[in-house]
Nucleic acid binder design. Structure first.
Lengths: 205, 205
DNA sequence: GTCTATAAATTGATAGAC
DNA sequence: GTCTATCAATTTATAGAC
């Protein structure tokens, strides 16, 4: 019973902390706000996680892991690479659009931390980029795509998908006079745009 | 004399504030740290700028304006569009590489602020996107490039240049085992990569 | 496990002397 | 203009009752 309740609380805290940290950043987040959102007392935060630093670490690992795996996992099977990429772009743009603060949060906090922190998170997260490399190499060997640099390729895809969304608050104003609907259309159109770019660059002559 | 000294102090404050705010973010920056870096007393900060908020506003406008104009100004003259783009990519990647925190700072803070703040900054900054639109349209009319969407085009260029640098701390570890030199080579190579992508997408059949 | 009370440290801001 | 001293508010963290 008690344990059951405890687990519940721990989850509620993590859920609340996630929301606050992601939105406000580590230094902008307040323990009080997290406690309020979790519907508990501030002291309980320290009971479950010794300090703000430790709570942040837990949250960051959780968020990063989930996000990173969503990227990596797509490049597995023996599916057609063009289908995989098309699906990836479609899913990914929608995913970030729904959680626009997540990429910002990750990039932002990673820029503030020492290398050791980042390395540790990556290690614990257990993401494995080799699956992706092999997937690309296999397709090159089969002559399905040109012999492109897989590193440049993945960065191209991520850049073209992520940047328009994290920079939305400025770009929407400058390009579309802050018309939200217009920018949403722009992002929909963007799926085709990114697809075309990537396909053009990798398809054999 | 007094005025001369005053000006000097104000500049020193702005310079220090810029460095701290850009690196630590608004909520992470400390007035004490800014004062220390400027070599003055904390009270003087409040003497020149009434509050942290006002100091931040001044710094943000300054940083954003400088950065935005560097982007816009390149698309002016009657120069060849392919040359302009090539030069832009080359300059821009180097510029961000030297100041990797600036784009993050801008994107980050703009995501935290209300639309009114962003609109105000853009208005005061006086950036004018029309110059760019006209430049592209002229080149389309002349048949120098395909009839691409100028909005997608500029976002493509910026995405491909900025993202690999702001995400460097993660990507360098995942793709290059945290080998700094290797990633620098990657970024140099990237200039060619981005150029090729953009050229391929806009050059007439 | 959860709460109240409170400590201890930090931080933005002001008053007032020079 | 610049500094010292200090306030007032915030914020992380702990002690201790239940």
């Amino acid at each position: 019973m008690r344990e059951k309740l405890s687990e519940n609380t721990e989850e509620k805290i993590l859920e609340a902390a996630k929301e606050i940290f992601v939105r406000e950043g580590k230094s902008g987040a307040r323990m009080q706000e997290i406690a309020d959102k979790a519907g508990i007392n501030k002291s309980l935060l320290h009971y479950y996680y010794r300090s703000k630093e430790k709570l942040f670490y837990t949250v960051f690992k959780f968020v990063f892991s989930k996000f990173a795996h969503k990227i990596i996992n797509l490049f597995d099977a023996d599916k057609d690479i063009f289908e995989v990429i098309e699906q990836f772009i479609d899913n990914y743009i929608d995913l970030i659009r729904k959680n626009p603060f997540i990429p910002m949060f990750i990039i932002n906090e990673i820029n503030r931390k020492e290398t050791s922190f980042v390395t540790e998170v990556i290690r614990e997260t257990g993401i494995n980029i080799d699956t992706y490399f092999e997937f690309i190499q296999r397709n090159i060997d089969l002559g399905k795509i040109k012999a492109v640099d897989p590193k440049q390729l993945i960065i191209n895809i991520l850049s073209l998908c992520i940047f328009p969304i994290i920079s939305r608050p400025i770009v929407q104003i400058i390009l579309y006079d802050d018309n939200k609907n217009a920018y949403d259309k722009f992002l929909d159109q963007r799926k085709k745009e990114v697809n075309e770019i990537i396909f053009t660059m990798i398809k054999p002559n």
